[in-house]
Design a protein around this nucleic acid. Structure first.
Lengths: 185, 185
DNA sequence: GAAAATATTTGCCAATTGGCAAAAAGTGAA
DNA sequence: TTCACTTTTTGCCAATTGGCAAATATTTTC
């Protein structure tokens, strides 16, 4: 929980009272590895702050192949969780710890804490920009470089999640990734 | 100018008075094709709304090659214009029409118009998300598909700007792009 | 633990793309 | 127009990646 507050405080000031209000509404939730939120969106349909673990977002392309679109890791705010395109799947790829807010509670925070929405916007903007940097730096790199980049970004999961997740994220085939892995030892 | 107001109004309500305030501070500026802002950042260092034309952002990679990182086209708000990494170049690739605000005027708008910053944040968020969609859909596509995608996004410039701009944007060599062009007629 | 199911690696060959250099085409200046 | 310069195209070959299928390896289930 402290992680979350600490994270928020980087983007704006909050007094003790406001912090208490937030923590009062925040619910910690843990999900095991491989949990799909898709069938279970009922609960965390609102806002989820990923405290620990890695999540991936995937979809099925027009060939029916499942493509990993993003990975999220620690300290990532997932807003509009329920508003992802319906064809997107959200899945934990490791055990995960979230902080969840219901829509109602979130609304109350917006109304009570001046600047709340602005702080959240700032966070989302930062996340978006980082994502753009990450993705666009992948273009024009060969597959090996992209994989090394992935290893840097997600050092702890490479050998614990299916190869296919990473391969589709990198935009290459499983076989190619397997060969790349071999070649870099 | 109307374009700009029309665009803003999609993201929030403004009354006549507010609109007048905005248009009073907005300066239309035109720049010819191939104008680099880099050496001339003095003027438009603040906020620029691209009304007409296409702009590209580029940088030099570690091999000393100039890479086109983004193209922007109509109805794009360039915020923090002066805050692009110093190593980035901004250049018009066609004749362009901008609406420019000075830092001072912009600040006044923020202070006078309630929600102004929030509206702008919404716009930036939308732009970021679109960019993420655009870029990430390019990964895992072969070069021909990426070029066709580029043609869809920027239908009017493909044959009017240097091949090298497009090639580096797509992450391929000029020769490859030349061959692709030939192959798709 | 054994069998079944799933995931990964490998082999083989084809398609794509890169690297380099030369040729061709286009552009601008005098 | 002609010459110099820049951009684009092409040829040639190498490196990378894809596609498919079979072989291994790993994980799950019973």
């Amino acid at each position: 929980m402290n992680e979350f507050i600490k994270y928020i405080l980087q983007f704006g000031n909050l007094n003790t009272q406001q912090i208490d209000l937030i923590t009062g509404k925040a619910a910690e939730m843990e999900f095991p590895k491989d949990h799909y939120f898709w069938e279970a969106t009922k609960v965390p349909k609102h806002i989820g702050f990923l405290v620990e673990g890695v999540v991936r977002v995937s979809f099925y392309d027009n060939k029916g192949e499942e493509i990993t679109k993003y990975f999220f890791d620690e300290n990532h705010l997932i807003k509009d969780w329920g508003n992802f395109e319906p064809s997107f799947y959200i899945q934990t790829v490791t055990d995960c710890k979230f902080i969840i807010f219901t829509k109602k509670d979130w609304k109350e925070l917006s109304e009570t804490i001046l600047d709340w929405e602005r702080v959240i916007d700032k966070i989302m903007t930062k996340q978006h920009i980082r994502k753009i940097e990450k993705i666009s730096s992948m273009i024009s790199q060969d597959a090996t470089t992209r994989y090394l980049e992935f290893l840097k970004n997600f050092p702890n999961i490479a050998n614990r999640i299916p190869l296919s997740y990473i391969a589709s994220y990198l935009g290459i085939t499983q076989s190619s990734l397997s060969r790349i892995r071999k070649s870099i030892g």
